[in-house]
Write a protein that binds this DNA or RNA. Structure first.
Length: 362
DNA sequence: TAACCGTGGAA
DNA sequence: TTTCCAAGGTT
């Protein structure tokens, strides 16, 4: 029983010329002409972009990538930064464990590797926040290693090329084996980026542009099935609804009472306004138990926010207080500087619900 | 292994 | 409006 195979040399011959013509120009990339002259992207830039791009769109990452390079031009600069400043700069990008691990990784590179990123997959993967994908990507793109780079784009391309019927995530080891066989020794970094560009622009989740695809003569799904139905995926479960309350206190100088969340877990290490736990209960009786201090709390509506594994509905309460007294666990932050705080989106929504002009220009 | 962990844009 | 999901990692 012989299985369907595509030679790495054939894959390279089809994909690399396509990449030379149709690659995306991205801020963290070295263009193919430069790459063929032996110019390699800065490992710090590659690593920073790859971490930011985990489960995040290119469009969302661009502005953050520029901001981080402006604030911390080298990995040593980032290693020396205050974690709090890193969290503030990351605010809004999501998955905040990435920011905490980014800082830890920079420190490890500085301390354990003399400020230079290791150039092998194995040693890269030993660093915080670097898993299978990111280790392979940095090794291939920044160090020209022939590593098997498998991300969501590549999974989709591979699943269609070989018409893989097994659903994700169970099929992932099989896909890793296939991409390892398919990756050429020639220009492995460009090959990896080409696979991802192909998945992002041609071999898209919906309505793939198969007529423009360089792999068209080799794609089993195109010839034997419907490419759009790949990759097969296990059914996902629905998100439960959780309820909670948030308290927005404003003093006479228009400062808001904020506090820091625990370092781990949901929105770990980020800033918040005080509030209740977020539970599935509909019990309003305990709401005021969570007030940061006694005040004339007025209900001012609710905000909804969708997290990865649940939906949240927050009842928002507002109180105007005479003076900024308490400060037991938090601090008073002027409205003017709220936008530079480490506030996750759900907290900005809650504050904006209580103070509509809080995040206005100026 | 499966649950946990954000956000915003597109269709 | 709802659904999907984007260059995943950690526990």
């Amino acid at each position: 029983m012989t299985r369907y195979t595509i030679a790495a040399s054939e894959a390279a011959a089809l994909l690399l010329p396509w990449y030379d013509r149709h690659h995306r120009d991205l801020p963290w990339r070295v263009s193919p002409p430069m790459a063929r002259q032996g110019i390699v992207a800065d490992p710090y830039h590659v690593w920073l972009s790859e971490v930011m791009l985990q489960q995040t769109t290119v469009q969302a990452v661009k502005a953050y990538f520029d901001k981080f390079l402006r604030l911390w031009p080298t990995v040593e600069d980032l290693a020396s930064a205050e974690t709090e400043d890193v969290m503030k700069a990351w605010a809004g990008l999501g998955y905040y464990a990435r920011a905490r691990n980014l800082k830890k990784c920079a420190e490890a590179v500085s301390r354990e590797h003399g400020g230079r990123f290791p150039d092998t997959e194995e040693r890269l993967k030993a660093l915080p926040g670097i898993g299978d994908y990111t280790a392979a990507a940095v090794a291939a793109i920044a160090f020209n290693r022939r590593s098997a780079v498998l991300d969501g784009n590549v999974e989709r391309v591979i699943s269609r090329l070989y018409a893989i019927e097994a659903p994700l995530p169970a099929a992932k080891p099989r896909m890793r084996q296939l991409i390892a066989e398919l990756t050429p020794a020639e220009r492995p970094g460009d090959f990896a980026q080409a696979m991802m560009d192909l998945g992002a622009t041609i071999c898209t989740p919906k309505r793939p542009a198969c007529s423009l695809c360089p792999f068209r003569p080799k794609c089993l799904a195109l010839h034997n099935a419907d490419p759009e139905t790949f990759p097969r995926k296990a059914a996902k479960k629905e998100k439960p609804l959780r309820l909670g309350a948030a308290f927005v206190a404003i003093d006479q100088a228009e400062a808001v009472y904020l506090r820091k969340r625990p370092e781990t877990g949901l929105l770990g290490g980020m800033t918040e306004v005080p509030g209740t736990d977020w539970t599935a209960r509909r019990d309003g009786a305990t709401t005021l138990d969570a007030q940061p201090f006694a005040a004339a709390w007025q209900p001012c509506g609710a905000v909804s926010h969708v997290f990865t594994h649940f939906e949240l509905r927050l009842s928002v309460y507002r109180a105007n207080v005479i003076a900024a007294l308490p400060g037991v666990e938090g601090w008073w932050e002027p409205i003017a500087s709220l936008k530079t705080q480490a506030l996750p989106t759900v907290m900005k929504k809650a504050i904006a619900q209580a103070i509509p002009h809080a995040f206005n220009q100026g």
